[in-house]
Structures are given as structure tokens and as C-alpha cells.
């Protein structure tokens, strides 16, 4: 059920030592959110599994965990979508093209796509939570799986990856529904929280897997809607977020009950999370 940490960064390399990579390009996605294209200095491909994250260093400022949100078009680099909220994320988003930055990872257990590929996948994403799910969505569609994507954003101007959403919408085996929490009168799409879309989703609760990423409270609401729709806990996967410093299980910060979110997660099955999510301040 549970993916072993990938052997992408093993001894003898010091797991706490970043490698130098370069910002090849960046684009503003929505207000305050940038996507960075990162390539290795030596040009060798950077690899990852959908759902994994990396530690990015803005030299002189600090280091933060960021989910990988895709590959560069030529396949050799990785894309990170970052909201500039703190000193480090603001510095990363402010880097100029060609600037060096530090990269560790990718780390952690990603989405259970081996299981998912053959079946149908229901994705529920909220806000920037679409970023770590984008590679999973691409993988499901590439593998010919059936995709239901329910995506919620705060408002029409904060919908991430509109071009990708349009492309996925036109995919043959996909149902893509986008909703916003509130909108102006020019918006003709859904208005309401993302969980209100769950009853509209066409999936078979006995075979579908649900992949959920967004703010923790939104994920809790989403899980409750998915369970009402008949999905069992073992079929629901959440991407968890906690404070992280080392990403390799040394620093202790990201513990969530028995799990190191960095190493055992960030993607964890709801069957393992359920007893923990109900505990306050865990």
C-alpha cells in the first residue's frame, strides 16, 4: 500500500548538502504565486515521482520544502510552484533567470499511482494543492486511466494552471469540475466550496482512488464528503504538510503521530491518518 522512499538520494552523499541547480525560467501563475523551472548545472535530468517534494535553498536566506509540480517541457528539469509568503519563498520567487539555487531531494512517498493507473482516480484539490497533484493527473491520463478532478480555488483569478485545466477538461476519460469560493457576476462556472462537487463526481466508490491535497481543513471536509459518497478510508490519500527542516527523518519537526511526514509521507493513506486527524494540536 505504502511506497518505500525512493533511492534517489542515498549515502554516501550527505543528505543535508544541497546540490547547485539553476533557475532556467519562471512564470507568474496567479497573484503572489510563481512557477520556477529548475535544471541541473551539468544538464543531467532531474527525476522525481508525483507527490514528492524537494528542499529548495535561496542562498543567504534559507531553505523550504516545495512539492514538485511537474517536469520542464524538455523533460530534464523540474517545476516548482511557490507562493511567496515568507522570506525564503519570497526570495525564491524573486530569483532571476539563470540564478543558482540549492536543491535537495526529491524526498518522500508520492501518490500511489501504480495502484491507480489501472483504475479510476478522483482528485480533489484546493488552492495551491493542485500543484503536487498536477504530475499525478498527467500520469493518470497518460496511462489511460479515468480521471475525475474537482478543483476549488478562492476566486476566478486564483485558479491555478488554467491552460492545463482546459486541456484536461477535453481529455476523453476525464471529468473536470472547477469551483470557486466566491465570484463576480461574470463567472459562469460553479461557485461554492470544492466539497459540494463531490456528489457530481462520477466514480465507482469500489474501484476509485481519491487523491486529495489542499489546506488541512479542506482535506478533512473533502474526506467526509468522499466517505459519504461511499469511498473507504483505504482508498483516500492525502498529501500532508508539516514544518520540515531536514526532509530525511533526522530533525523531528514533521512528526504527525508515528509518521515522519517527510519520509513516510507527504502522501499518506487516510486509513492511517484518520485516528490522528481528529486529535487537536497533534
Amino acid at each position: 500500500m505504502f511506497m518505500a522512499p525512493p533511492a534517489t538520494d542515498i549515502a554516501p552523499r550527505d543528505p543535508l548538502l544541497p546540490r547547485i541547480v539553476r533557475l532556467r525560467g519562471k512564470r507568474r501563475e496567479i497573484r503572489g504565486v510563481w512557477s520556477l523551472e529548475v535544471v541541473a548545472e551539468e544538464g543531467e535530468p532531474l527525476d522525481f515521482a508525483p507527490g514528492q517534494f524537494s528542499m529548495l535553498t535561496a542562498f543567504g536566506v534559507g531553505e523550504v520544502p516545495v512539492s514538485v509540480s511537474g517536469r520542464t517541457r524538455d523533460g530534464i528539469g523540474l517545476v516548482y510552484t511557490i507562493r511567496a509568503v515568507g522570506a525564503v519563498t519570497a526570495a525564491l520567487c524573486g530569483l532571476r533567470t539563470g540564478a543558482p539555487l540549492g536543491l535537495r531531494g526529491p524526498f518522500g512517498a508520492g501518490w500511489p499511482l501504480e495502484e491507480a493507473a489501472a483504475r479510476e482516480v478522483t482528485v480533489i484539490a484546493g488552492g495551491l494543492g493542485l500543484a503536487p497533484l498536477r504530475p499525478a493527473i498527467e500520469a493518470v491520463l497518460a496511462a489511460g486511466g479515468r480521471l475525475v478532478l474537482l478543483y476549488g480555488a478562492r476566486g476566478p483569478s486564483e485558479i491555478l494552471y488554467p491552460a492545463d485545466l482546459a486541456r484536461w477538461q477535453s481529455a476523453r476519460r476525464a471529468q473536470v469540475e472547477v469551483t470557486v469560493d466566491h465570484a463576480g457576476p461574470e463567472w459562469h462556472g460553479h461557485v461554492g466550496v470544492v466539497t459540494r462537487l463531490v456528489p457530481r463526481a462520477r466514480f465507482d466508490p469500489d474501484t476509485a482512488l481519491a487523491l486529495v491535497c489542499g489546506p488541512e481543513i479542506m482535506m478533512r471536509f473533502a474526506v467526509s464528503s468522499l466517505r459519504e459518497a461511499g469511498l473507504s478510508d483505504a482508498r483516500i490519500f492525502l498529501s500532508m504538510e508539516r514544518n520540515m527542516k531536514c526532509a530525511v527523518g533526522f530533525c523531528g519537526h514533521c512528526q504527525f503521530g508515528p509518521h515522519f511526514v517527510c519520509r513516510d509521507g507527504p502522501v499518506l493513506g487516510y486509513d492511517r491518518l484518520a485516528p490522528l486527524l481528529r486529535i487537536e494540536e497533534l
Binding site: G60, C251, H253
Partner: peptide
């Protein structure tokens, strides 16, 4: 107890950034 955190400090004279690990506490 093994928990730790990291700190980046900048040496204004040398222009160097130093990342250090130090014990942290839950």
C-alpha cells in the same frame, strides 16, 4: 532526543552563507 533545526547566517565581511544545525526542542 535528537530533534534539530537549521539556521542560515550570513557573514557580511566574507559574503559567505553558513548553514548550521542545532538542537531544537518540541
Amino acid at each position: 532526543c535528537f530533534c534539530s533545526t537549521v539556521e542560515d547566517t550570513n557573514d557580511l565581511l566574507s559574503g559567505e552563507t553558513v548553514r548550521s544545525q542545532r538542537w531544537d526542542s518540541c
